[in-house]
Design a protein around this nucleic acid. Structure first.
Lengths: 337, 337
DNA sequence: TAGATAATTTAAATCGTTTTAAAAAAGGAT
DNA sequence: ATCCTTTTTTAAAACGATTTAAATTATCTA
């Protein structure tokens, strides 16, 4: 293990000078700098991040907390965030969480100051048990940005949102225009999309039918199983809006397998507009959520927070970020009869 | 920011005692220990990982390097690795890499000793440019385990493998049994699966046709585009083996869209056996690669390396891990006429 | 109760950097 | 040559924990 002092000794300077030289300080003689850097390279010296961070309070690492990453919606976000971060000299580590507890572990890791900042893109159950802790993290340790998690920014956390609640409404409007009234929703109770569905029904004066909301449907598999249930159902909806594209695709998969036609027999609409939805057969009608845009914005904000004066920072907190959603009409929805 | 000495002061003990108490040392009086721990909890004290690691040489964090995570094959591995690690008190950070350079960044991060050990599950182009550096990492810094990357273990790196090269052979044998001879392969040049395909052709005495190997086909989209090409092709293969299930599904998607039937007109076989392949319609015939098993084994080895004496460690290096692959026959392959 | 032993606590060194303040060297002006 | 700047280098403190070895206190034995 090569230490700074090894480099210094070989270059005949003190550790202090060596440190300065390696950090391109203009206090050090140009010739000395070149010599030290050359020797460091020869010895393949890599500074100890822990020691460095301990003193310099910087690791150039950002943490990204996301739900376990089999959902392409999130992997697209993750990729975009990394792209922007890398371009600005920061490394990203992903923290995939499946439960409140796991998220908590990472919050503590972050509190231990391994990272310079964090983005939380993890959706969370109705009571946000970790919110207080994250608030504290943001207040005392590192800047934090949320993606689709808080309604608005709080004292210490900036939130980048999309109009998630409006997505089902957009879908319903589209379906109503096509003559549908029996419009179902498959998703998660108390989550913004499900809420948005219920609100939109009221707003558009469509009678709510208890049999038309399917709860706890989140994954491809859930959608698949739901299809088996719906195929057997008596009073079948004529259209179903799904919590995300994966559910929609799983659903279509099983409906078709059981002999139902999409969209001839039943219209299906997804939410998210993941890349796959475009290539699916039939191509999926869905509501676009600008995930990459959110990722990009969140990262920019985080970087700005890290590199700005208190006044600039205050200004950052004046803004609210709420990106709009948009229907992408493709092949899985069609006019009734 | 609460420091150890703050806790110590409030508990009326020295930092040394506080440290001992918080680490459950039996050198400290039971009553003192309780008092210190209580106060630490009250103050919401969380130790600084950097400082801790600097002295104690331990972070309880493992790094996992994987290709960017839109491929479910890898997210399944990742999840499994995290499960095992968590159970043993270690946290996992994911490092998604898309290029040699990105991988290099993480190697350096690891060299800076932020993590206690690392698993590399990233596949890499034909010349493994980073191998020497990873070797050095393993020799001088932290234990490293490879998944599907090296043929065998080296001096310092244990490799957990599956018989990837045999996967195409298994598929071909299945297809030949069904009467196919015009068997194509879509994948990546110089990669083990492609190599396995060519070898198997020879071995099974099937004439090689230049038009039947499609190169640079790795993703869902690649498969989709390939379908458009194959649909137009004159001398079409009767069966296609794909580099992975995503390619297979993309391929089927576009073939069907262009009016070809699978498996009536053409048989398709995937590799990987991702969860989705089971739910796909028609359900995908594929070759199972035991990814979770590999993840589990790799993690166990890493943990063993971290917690074992030199002799035990030597013993670990005696073993080779090479899991077998297996055909999963489902609905996308069928007998030729 | 002295003396020995065991249990508990603590001062100080340490990990590998950065940074501050002071020292040394170099350059310039008279 | 002397004094004053400016440039360059360095010794030492600091970051926040752990750990070693020494000091203190408590317990036991005869």
């Amino acid at each position: 293990m090569i230490r700074l002092k090894d480099v210094a000794k070989k270059a005949n300077v003190s550790p202090a000078t060596a440190s300065l030289a390696l950090n391109n300080s203009d206090k050090v003689n140009a010739e000395t700098m070149r010599r030290v850097q050359k020797i460091a390279a020869e010895l393949n010296y890599i500074p100890d991040v822990r020691a460095k961070a301990l003193k310099a309070k910087e690791t150039k690492i950002l943490g990204l907390v996301i739900p376990e990453i089999d959902n392409p919606f999130f992997s697209e976000i993750a990729k975009e965030i990394k792209r922007v971060a890398k371009k600005n000299g920061y490394n990203i580590i992903y923290c995939g969480v499946e439960s409140q507890q796991e998220e908590l572990d990472y919050i503590n890791l972050f509190r231990g100051m391994q990272v310079d900042g964090a983005i939380f893109a993890s959706s969370v159950s109705k009571v946000d048990a970790n919110l207080a802790l994250i608030e504290e993290l943001a207040a005392n340790f590192i800047p934090v940005v949320f993606i689709n998690r808080l309604p608005k920014h709080t004292e210490n956390i900036i939130a980048v949102n999309s109009e998630l609640e409006k997505a089902p409404q957009v879908a319903i409007e589209h379906l109503v225009k096509l003559g549908h009234q029996k419009i179902a929703f498959a998703g998660k109770e108390n989550e913004s999309r499900m809420k948005g569905y219920l609100k939109a029904l009221q707003k558009l004066n469509i009678t709510y039918n208890n049999h038309y909301t399917f709860k706890n449907i989140l994954s491809f598999e859930d959608g698949y199983k739901l299809g088996e249930k719906i195929a057997k159902q008596q009073d079948r909806p004529t259209a179903i809006i799904c919590h995300n594209d994966e559910v929609a695709i799983g659903l279509i998969q099983s409906l078709v397998r059981l002999g139902l036609q999409v969209p001839a027999d039943i219209s299906i609409c997804g939410i998210d507009n993941i890349r796959l939805s475009h290539f699916y057969n039939p191509a999926l009608t869905t509501v676009n959520i600008p995930n990459k845009k959110m990722g990009r914005q969140a990262t920019k904000i985080l970087l700005a927070e890290l590199n700005s004066s208190p006044e600039q920072k205050a200004k950052l907190f004046k803004n609210d970020y709420n990106f709009s959603v948009k229907l992408i009409e493709r092949e899985t929805t069609r006019a009734l009869n």
